[in-house]
């Protein structure tokens, strides 16, 4: 089997240093399962899929629901992204295809398309606000909300959680977004004693 390398693996040490220095908690969650699902929400297939994955597809724009170890993100009026743990893809695709039962439903494993970055802690909102025009206040964008938008001009899917955000970034943009996040958090990071503050 070929060796797997996550798109932001090279940033692990710098993420850790920034997190330890009082900045936002930055990390990568590599290899999450991502399944893109397109189905008419009014069709019986959508209902069967809801039953099969144990949670109904969210119909309100910009919402995410959790069911077991799955998170279902609303991407469009007939499009959802299913997030699951590493290795869940084959079984999930099979369950979804079975529930579709020949109806016009599209199920595509897009796990390799994006990686997941975590921006958490009390400074998370401040850091994202450097490059994202959305109102991220918990009153508007609290847990259970998700959005496709741009962060520093890179397309991202933002998912709000209890303690911060998970951010799905295209693999080819991961290094850019990681560099940008580190740069944006610089002002919140206290350098270790004895080192000069970054210029």
């Amino acid at each position: 089997m070929a060796e797997r390398r996550s798109p932001a693996a090279a940033f692990a040490a710098r993420f850790e240093a920034a997190s330890a220095g009082g900045g936002p908690r930055l990390a990568e969650i590599p290899f999450l399962t991502q399944i893109d699902l397109r189905v008419d929400p009014k069709s019986p297939a959508a209902e069967r899929i809801g039953t099969a994955i144990g949670v109904p597809l969210p119909l309100e724009p910009g919402t995410a629901v959790r069911g077991g170890d799955l998170t279902v993100l609303w991407l469009g009026p007939d499009e959802w992204l299913l997030l699951g743990p590493d290795g869940a893809a084959p079984g999930l695709v099979e369950r979804l295809t079975e529930a579709a039962a020949g109806e016009p439903v599209s199920v595509v494993d897009v796990s390799a398309q994006r990686t997941t970055l975590v921006v958490a802690g009390e400074r998370a909102r401040d850091v994202l606000a450097h490059g994202c025009a959305l109102d991220l206040h918990p009153r508007v964008f609290g847990p259970g909300r998700c959005a496709q938008t741009t962060l520093a001009r890179a397309g991202v899917v933002l998912v709000a959680g209890e303690d911060g955000f998970r951010m799905l970034v295209r693999s080819s943009f991961a290094a850019y977004v990681a560099e940008w996040l580190l740069d944006a958090s610089l002002e919140y990071v206290t350098p270790p004693a004895g080192e000069a503050a970054p210029a």
């Binding site: 724009p61 910009g62 469009g76 009026p77 025009a133 959305l134 959005a147 496709q148 938008t149 741009t150 001009r153």
Partner: peptide
Amino acid sequence: PWCGPRDEAE
């Protein structure tokens, strides 16, 4: 009409 107010750049 789906996502609410967003920047023109999107």
